[in-house]
Design a protein around this nucleic acid. Sequence first.
DNA 1: GCTATTTTCAAACGATTGTTTTAAACAGGC
DNA 2: GCCTGTTTAAAACAATCGTTTGAAAATAGC
Lengths: 208, 208
Amino acid sequence: MAQSDTKTKIIKTAEELFAIAGFHHTSLRTITAKAGVNLAAVNYHFGCKEALLEAILDRHLLPLNESRRRRLQAVADEVDGSGRPPAVEEVLRCFTEPTLALLHGDQAAGYFRMLVGRSLSDPDQTVRQHFLGRIRGVLEQLLDLLCRALPHCPRESVAWRLHFALGAMSHTLIFQEQGPLLGGLDKSTPLDEVIEMLTDFIVKGLDR
Amino acid sequence: MAQSDTKTKIIKTAEELFAIAGFHHTSLRTITAKAGVNLAAVNYHFGCKEALLEAILDRHLLPLNESRRRRLQAVADEVDGSGRPPAVEEVLRCFTEPTLALLHGDQAAGYFRMLVGRSLSDPDQTVRQHFLGRIRGVLEQLLDLLCRALPHCPRESVAWRLHFALGAMSHTLIFQEQGPLLGGLDKSTPLDEVIEMLTDFIVKGLDR
DNA sequence: GCTATTTTCAAACGATTGTTTTAAACAGGC
DNA sequence: GCCTGTTTAAAACAATCGTTTGAAAATAGC
């Protein structure tokens, strides 16, 4: 029971607190107190606070990106075979659907979702860099395939549209708890429906 | 010259540093050192750090939102008269174009742009609340008018699409300095062109 | 030119941060 | 049993944070 019980408790608690209050605004004392472990345990198991963040990111982000990568590659291979350009929506779903699978598979992944959404726009360079370093490769792959789906469109235009789309995505991932910023917005809408609407929105923006 | 010279120097410096590093990650000592004023000057002139943030937000956000409000009202009045629903793009530009005017009018507003972009998704509740409190009214007005532009579309769907659009917008405002997260993205693209592409993207997503 | 007010300044305050330290408790191998 | 390496515990570390203090300096009113 002693082996890595403490380590897991720290990771899960920190994941939640980082997602809600942000990395720098969450102290190790808050984490360890809520997790019921000793303060020094963080530095013993992870070395430093920043390494704890990396461990949290790795836990979900690595398999998630691997899944995205496989799906993107599968579509790319299919295009290579048939010679027909892929549909924009098909490409986009290679990126988004693994996220949905993750959120359905792991009940506790809800907080991770917020953390990911925040990471892109975090004011702190540390958080941003750790996150970007783990996702940049997949983004390039996604951009490449999008360009093949839009052969008439210059790469830079596609890149800008993808940039806008990522903004919409991260903003949607964050949205939770922090109160609806729009009056007519129902927070209880199931995540699946939200993602469907978001996908529609993005596909329309990316296409043509 | 002495009257509010210090006060202005503090505001302008803080605006820049808050935009780049975030509110909580920027210390009053960093601000005052860069501004060349005494540490205590902040608490003397503004009361506390949080009030300094409010002053910064007010300086540009109040006139900006007033301009947006007037333009939205003008379109609404026109619709009331003619009875024809407005175009989505027309409504959207009521919100975005005043921003462009601000950025062109004030050379130093570039940092404010980043600050605004960050504020929506800031991990810290303080920053978010101060920002939302100053923009929520205009957003409601924008949503109302968008619903009239899309009479066949249920209000909640419009709200969600606007939600996605706001994500794309804030993400675009932030983007600067922090290194391109996408390879094919040219950072030197003039802001006008970026906003044009962004508007296209959003209109396509909002419409129909 | 004096007074009264505003503004600046250096120094310190108390609280909190991530991290380190030192000792104690625990585990399993032989 | 004892020993070796791992894990926890409480305390202290040095650094930084926002804020306050009290006196000096500058300014304005008359």
